[in-house]
Design a protein around this nucleic acid. Structure first.
Lengths: 183, 183
DNA sequence: ACGGGAACTGTCAGTGAGTGTCAAATGGCA
DNA sequence: TGCCATTTGACACTCACTGACAGTTCCCGT
């Protein structure tokens, strides 16, 4: 179903493709489409729940390791998957840059990721200041993913996504460590 | 018209309020509403164009000053305005946290701001690597605004927004300076 | 093999956002 | 007053999305 949607989006563009057409291409009713995806744009990010769950589990199962290292690993794992199936994810990346709605949804997903990270980084019963620091840390970390994704999309998949992510984390590392370690 | 929309959103909530109702409250036709705002959610951020223009001008008119200092000043000026008219902007902030659509629009606006900053930070005829560094810098700088805005909204306007912004920029400063100064 | 309940799917009707088209109104300005 | 341009309203239409209900499929113990 996601496959049918992405194919149609790639062929005719996001806007001109109707949900009815996607449903027909996937041999289901329109109503069924909306049982699987809560919106048209969600069909583009069908795997979001799993990715979020993976992040959540990794953060929950961290021992003493700092949050930013966990996040770095998770993001790198994601980048590797993206590069393994470039064709699929490039369609997505292109939609992301051309269609405001898709871009918006992507940003919302990143915000959810950010919430997840911020929650994990804040100590139990954190002060307002600690909450803010956790949020800022999370914002910094998702900034790496956002910048990498856009740069990758702009290069049309020719540049190395994993290298972008690695570089981004290298530059952010000191600030992140300070936010987490520092008093 | 923005005033009428915000009032209705605050009274009945975002979802239940229809565009027809907003238009009626503002004594215009529904068609006219959509001439002023390209979507329902846009009525919440009626001042976005001006703010974007202000940022653009400040960036264009910078001499030798680094981008992150300019952005810091612009953001602080915005924060001051927000705190001057708390009642209006708190409605917005609350909608931002409760309504996914509003939150999405806010994130898109931030992304546009990010584009603006990235464009200003990248040298003319930049290499792919320089473009990425500019993007990352821009992502870091907007992260400060995002974290501050959410923290402020969470505190229901009781905490100091300008202090959040100041603190955020202090922690990001080294990384930003490195991204801009370092080759 | 069979009955029954649960989960899945289709049909239908409806709401509301957003757009194109064109005519009417409005507001300077000569 | 008459002319032009910009703004507004009215109407009709598309499409995303939802609620309600009925039919279908699948799985389970017997």
């Amino acid at each position: 179903m996601t496959a049918a949607a992405l194919r149609l989006f790639a062929e005719r563009g996001y806007g001109p493709t109707t949900v009815a057409e996607i449903a027909a291409a996937a041999d289901v009713s329109q109503r069924t489409f909306f049982r699987y995806f809560s919106s048209k744009v969600d069909a583009v990010f069908g795997d979001a729940p799993e990715r979020l769950a993976a992040l959540h589990d990794s953060l929950a199962g961290r021992g003493e390791r700092p949050v930013h290292e966990i996040v770095r690993d998770v993001f790198l794992r994601m980048a590797t998957e993206f590069e393994r199936e470039t064709s699929v994810y490039l369609v997505r990346a292109r939609l992301m840059t051309s269609e405001p709605a898709v871009r918006g949804r992507f940003l919302e997903l990143l915000a959810t990721i950010e919430d997840e990270i911020a929650a994990a980084a804040a100590p139990r019963r954190a002060s307002a200041d600690e909450v803010f620091r956790a949020r800022l840390l999370a914002a910094l970390l998702t900034a790496t993913l956002r910048a990498s994704a856009f740069a990758w999309a702009a290069s049309r998949g020719r540049a190395s996504l994993t290298r972008f992510v690695t570089d981004a984390f290298d530059t952010v590392q000191p600030a992140a460590a300070a936010l987490e370690g520092g008093r």
